[in-house]
Design a protein around this nucleic acid. Structure first.
Lengths: 344, 344
DNA sequence: TTGTACGCGTTATCAC
DNA sequence: GTGATAACGCGTACAA
């Protein structure tokens, strides 16, 4: 069974290819009512579905949006064990589908560059999550399509940013512990890279400390990777070697989960002995036991916002490069659950 | 800056378009060494990247693989809060990327049918997770591309199936409880639909019971949705109203998490008062507190297998419809952690 | 080695 | 005002 093309429809309806195309594109002013009807009938009858591919070739669009996700160290696998990304993708997909776009999911490989996929697939736009090498951003610029960056502090007029105020988030988390009477507060975190979200959260942590007149102790910062494992070993370490620490801010919920596990393994309890505040509020946070107190970023809203901004830009692109806001921050709040104890 | 096309390369290298195309496709026997060199140089120089779109038009391929995911009730959002799917997608992406394919993620909308996207995008193949209406499968057949079904018991020679032996899984979970001395065993589960994975697990549950000479009590089956919420309310219910139940099999880890929460909220402990066995072994299972005893299905391997089978089929398609195995089951095992207590 | 018809749809141009 | 013809977009592969 061969594929039905526009030609088949034209022949079946006894009209020209052009007429069919006009009807398909709503330019019905150029075609008589009678013809329109016949064409619609034929389309139904043959079950004709236009090829986006062919259309894209002439219109120079693909109705495809690239979504770039961080990968595991070995560059083999998408970082999907962190539900954070899946929740966001879910939001993105929902938004772009309404406008007939589809998303293409891809990790960035060593050999193939991002530019490759963007160009070869003729992407209409892209959303990039996380932080990458300078090189990737350079490539992105060359791709010359609208791009929205999520959770990046790259400041470039070519990109739109969607994120949160990470410094404020770090501040809120730490402040929450301070407000509950904690004085010696640890920080368990991934690598603190310049201009990364983690650095901002770290800065917020320090600001809260300073504002409360507390001494910043570098020994209380446990810096490694954003992982359950790192949280777990830090938890044990803190529980065993730092009895003065009563509160810990973990810069990701996944880390907080590990942290709590590690603390328990050292024979202490959360929040009885040590209080913990996470970051993200992934859906597991409220399912965890004990339910995790954390800084809620509205993950779904974040994805949604990024997608909407991107589509706006794609739309406007035909016109001037209408640069809207450079950065949109999604509001933050503390999800106050059961891992922080009030000290008197 | 216009896009570089094959024409530009040909002009720059002072050769014909055909020559460039040959070199690009490795048919170098048709071109002289000298020409090959010049062409390669021009490609580098101009940074030329062929358009998959244009190539697809003539080759009738897209190097795109559709991945269909279940959606939430309101058909608005992908069911991504269950990390189960994301882990599988991660595996699929890794495999297909090696062969130059990309995956397109899509929910199935009410209006737009699956056939639409398959046809309009000219998908080379598709992987469908979960269970859908008859209609969708019918459409898939018409699409006439290789399709791999994950976790479906649809038995049709047009599809390849990848899954697990769900009946066995249900049996293993229940048997594990029985082996640990439990006699009154509850089942908390999503809707038991004919030929669904849940029904099979339910059947396995009954078989284990029967084999051990235990009475099957329909009152011990708590059937609703595959959700944390359902688990939670069932947990409370069981803890409060069914004191004789000492072990519960939850047909998904997410449900087990809720179950444990509900049990604790009713003032009982896991596994001291009630033992729980989950199903899936999503990565949160070992991070949960207490670490969840569950039936491990190797999610990553499942996705990987599905992707490999699909690619095989795509390759072979040019030849005969080489139907390989109809169904591949990924092995199962019990991940024995801390939510089952041994009764003496 | 190269010229060119072809794949599928869009749209400018031309004819009635 | 309606409708058809044909060039075009980008690569492929056959004929020359």
């Amino acid at each position: 069974m061969r594929k039905i093309t526009i030609k088949d429809v034209a022949r079946n309806a006894g009209v020209s290819i052009a007429a069919v195309s006009y009807v398909l594109n709503g330019k019905e002013s150029k075609v008589s009512q009678d013809t329109i009807a016949r064409i619609h009938e034929s389309i139904k009858e043959l079950n004709y579905i236009p090829s986006i591919t062919a259309r894209g070739l002439v219109k120079n669009t693909s109705e495809l949006i690239g979504v770039i996700i961080p990968q595991t160290e070995d560059h083999k696998q998408l970082v999907f064990e962190n539900p954070f990304y899946s929740e966001m993708i879910s939001a993105i997909e929902a938004v772009v589908r309404e406008d007939g776009y589809h998303i293409i999911l891809a990790g960035v490989d060593k050999g193939k560059t991002y530019l490759d996929i963007s160009t070869s697939r003729n992407l209409d736009g892209a959303i990039i999550m996380g932080i990458y090498s300078e090189q990737l951003y350079e490539e992105c610029k060359q791709a010359n399509i609208p791009i929205v960056l999520i959770d990046s502090y790259v400041n470039d007029s070519d990109f739109t940013n969607v994120g949160i105020d990470d410094e404020l988030g770090g501040y809120m988390a730490t402040k929450h512990l301070i407000d509950n009477g904690h004085r010696n507060i640890g920080l368990v975190t991934g690598m603190i890279r310049k201009d990364g979200v983690v650095e901002k959260r770290f800065l917020g942590y320090k600001r809260a400390l300073q504002e409360a007149g507390l001494f910043y102790n570098p020994d209380y910062v446990f810096e490694n990777s954003v992982s359950y494992t790192h949280g777990r070993s830090s938890g044990t370490l803190i529980a065993e070697k730092y009895p003065e620490i009563t509160g810990v801010f973990a810069t990701a919920d996944m880390v907080a989960f590990g942290l709590i596990r590690g603390i328990k393994e050292a024979g202490k309890e959360v929040p009885e002995h040590i209080s913990v505040v996470g970051f993200d509020d992934i859906s597991m946070a409220h399912m965890f036991l004990p339910p995790l107190t954390t800084v809620r970023q509205q993950i779904f809203l974040k994805g949604e916002t990024a997608a909407k901004l991107l589509i706006d830009q794609i739309r406007k692109k035909r016109g001037a490069k209408a640069h809207g806001k450079k950065r949109t921050n999604i509001p933050l709040e503390i999800a106050d659950r059961e891992t922080v104890r009030k000290l008197h």
